[in-house]
Amino acid sequence: MKMDWDVSKPVSFASGDHRHLVQKVANRGGYSKLGQSYMASSEGRSQDTKESPYPKAREQASIYVVQISENDCPNETSTDSSNPFADPPVRRAFIVKVFTILSIQLLTTAAITSLFVLMKGLRTWVTVHPLFIYALFPAFFVVFIVLACCGDLHRQVPANYILLGFFTLLQGLLLGGVSVFYNAEEVLWATGATTVVTLSLTLFALQTKLDFTLLNGVLFVCIIVLMIFGIVLIVVRTLWLHVLYAALGTVLFSMYLVMDVQLMVGGNHHSTLNAEEYVFAALNIYLDIINLFLFILQLIAMGR
């Protein structure tokens, strides 16, 4: 008896791949051939036995290979290779790189700001020439837009480091220019408060099970409203409105800091960053800390 069908590919019983084999036999009349062969072999079985002690050796054996792999099991979960943080060493290396870049940015900004705060001649010059601050804004926003919007550029080395260094330099000059309008003691208090808040929120973002990355759209709407509120305060000069504005800004950028830290960490959060976007991650957290410092500085100055 010889069945006129074969198996040329591995069969997955979990996905039902074997069903087409049964259909193939039915289409070729496999069942009828099987019945005819059985009747014919029953009549001449004794004669075939006498002629040859091994009657089946004359027929070509049909060999069927069934391969069951681990991927065929429906309950088996495979690792998603598209996830940039699927490998823990890759995730740790990414986090270390982001914090290293962020530390260099903050140290550079603190050094530049200290020059403006401690040097009386520089403080006087900036106070007499306030256009210095406004002249920095166009370059600041151009570099910021390039870093934030050009995804291919902030992944290319060394262009991403050069742009980030230039942006950090501009931010330090702007922050130093703003700091000359406050007392040195107020700047020191704001620096200490910002450090404590940043460390506390970072630890909270790393430990909490709440997913703040889901609030990305809500926080964006809130920051647009806060910007409109700030424009209104240019005309309406009321102390309690300025206090409310600074308080809302502190709360908003505190939530942004938690969200950006969770974006950097990745894992089970709703949204994560690509493993090549370490410059973008450092930029986000750096801007959150700088804005936190500015709003806390306003609160301390108005409180005094």
Rank of each mutant, 00 (worst) to 15 (best):
M1L: 12
M1F: 13
M3T: 14
W5P: 00
D6R: 06
V7Q: 01
P10I: 02
F13E: 02
F13Q: 03
A14M: 08
G16R: 09
R19V: 14
K24L: 09
G35Q: 08
G35V: 07
S37Y: 10
R45V: 08
S46E: 14
Q47V: 08
D48T: 09
S52Y: 12
Y54R: 13
K56L: 11
R58E: 11
Q60N: 13
A61R: 09
Y64A: 05
V66A: 07
S69F: 11
N71A: 11
P74N: 08
P74S: 10
T77D: 11
S78I: 12
S81I: 14
S82Y: 07
V90L: 08
V90E: 04
R92E: 09
I95K: 02
K97W: 05
F99E: 04
S103F: 15
S114N: 06
L115H: 06
V117F: 04
M119H: 08
M119V: 15
K120A: 14
L122Q: 04
T127I: 11
H129T: 14
I133Q: 04
L136Y: 02
L136G: 06
L136Q: 04
F137M: 12
F141K: 06
V142I: 15
V143T: 13
F144D: 00
F144N: 07
L147Q: 06
G151N: 13
G151W: 04
D152W: 06
L153Q: 10
R155V: 05
R155S: 05
Q156D: 13
A159D: 02
N160H: 09
L164Y: 00
G165I: 04
F166K: 03
F167G: 03
L173R: 01
G176V: 00
G176D: 00
V180Y: 00
Y182M: 07
V187H: 01
W189R: 07
T194H: 02
T194D: 04
T195W: 11
T202C: 07
F204N: 03
F204G: 02
K209Y: 05
L210W: 14
L214P: 02
L214K: 15
L219Q: 01
C222H: 00
F229N: 00
F229D: 00
V232H: 01
I234W: 11
R237D: 13
R237M: 10
W240T: 08
H242C: 00
V243Q: 07
V243S: 05
L244S: 10
A246F: 03
A246G: 01
L252F: 03
F253M: 05
L257D: 02
V258N: 02
G267V: 11
N268W: 06
S271Q: 14
T272D: 12
E277H: 05
F280Y: 15
A282S: 15
L283M: 14
F293P: 00
I296G: 00
L299M: 14
A301L: 00
